[in-house]
């Protein structure tokens, strides 16, 4: 597996949200606006890359790994929790409005299965550099996924796209042109599930089609042979 593949698998093939369906709780709760999704992405990237790196660092040292192995889950948790708390404090200090809107979901990154999962599944068995790339890819994959959900939800729910702070696109003219109004339902929790369901359905349909093509190709190849 090349470094490029390692990086890209997190975004497409093993996308944590769309393919693995991990980390649903924060992704459903914070995707009410693009701004929140971006903020969450930044936090996750920070925690993910650093936790992957640190854990990989610990585990790549054989002696240390042997010592740590029986208590590796607590060690992961300690590392991740420290990073999350640092992120939380920094966000509280410098991005207070984002901190307020993300609310409880920043501390909950600690138990986000993506981070813990990558630590156990990848970082513990790979080199630090690969782990960083993997973490970055996974975090960005997660970010892309919640960005898609949040664009979907914010646009349908309010007709706006809040990128950051005052940078806000008012897309209500589309609704005005169609002479309808935004559906507030999509900013509600129920709307989150419906949106995710739609997006997953589309992705499933697309991937099913691709698989079919691949199978056809394989068949074609066989037939040729």
């Amino acid at each position: 597996m090349t470094k490029k593949e390692n990086f890209l698998k997190g975004i497409f093939k093993e996308n944590p949200l769309f393919v693995a369906l991990l980390g649903m709780c924060p992704s459903l709760a914070v995707t009410t606006s693009v701004e929140n999704a971006l903020g969450m992405t930044i936090a996750v990237v920070f925690v993910m890359v650093l936790s992957n790196f640190l854990i990989s660092l610990i585990m790549s040292n054989e002696k240390l790994a042997a010592l740590v192995k029986p208590v590796r889950i607590p060690v992961y948790i300690v590392v991740i929790a420290t990073l999350v708390t640092i992120v939380e404090m920094l966000m509280h200090a410098y991005l207070i409005s984002l901190y307020k809107s993300l609310g409880i979901f920043i501390p909950l990154i600690v138990v986000n299965c993506i981070i813990l999962g990558r630590a156990e599944a990848f970082a513990a068995e790979n080199k630090p550099t690969d782990s960083i790339i993997d973490g970055l890819g996974m975090a960005l994959g997660f970010g892309v996924a919640i960005l898609i959900v949040s664009i979907f939800r914010e646009f349908l729910g309010t007709g706006l796209l809040t990128i950051w702070g005052d940078l806000q696109f008012d897309l209500n003219f589309i609704f005005d042109f169609l002479r309808i109004s935004p559906l507030g339902m999509f900013t509600q929790p129920a709307g989150a599930f419906i949106s995710l369901g739609f997006i997953l359905a589309i992705i499933a349909a697309v991937s099913a089609k691709r698989q079919e093509k691949q199978i056809n190709q394989v068949k074609g190849v066989k037939a040729n042979v």
């Binding site: 010592l67 300690v78 920094l90």
Partner: peptide
């Protein structure tokens, strides 16, 4: 020894957190 490793890791993390907290508390 594993416990000790965990403990020392916890200490390091705690110190790190204290440091960050010191930096940010006023601004928060």
């Amino acid at each position: 020894i594993s416990g000790l490793v965990l403990l020392s890791l916890g200490l390091i993390c705690g110190l790190l957190l204290a440091f960050v907290n010191e930096l940010t508390v006023e601004r928060i």
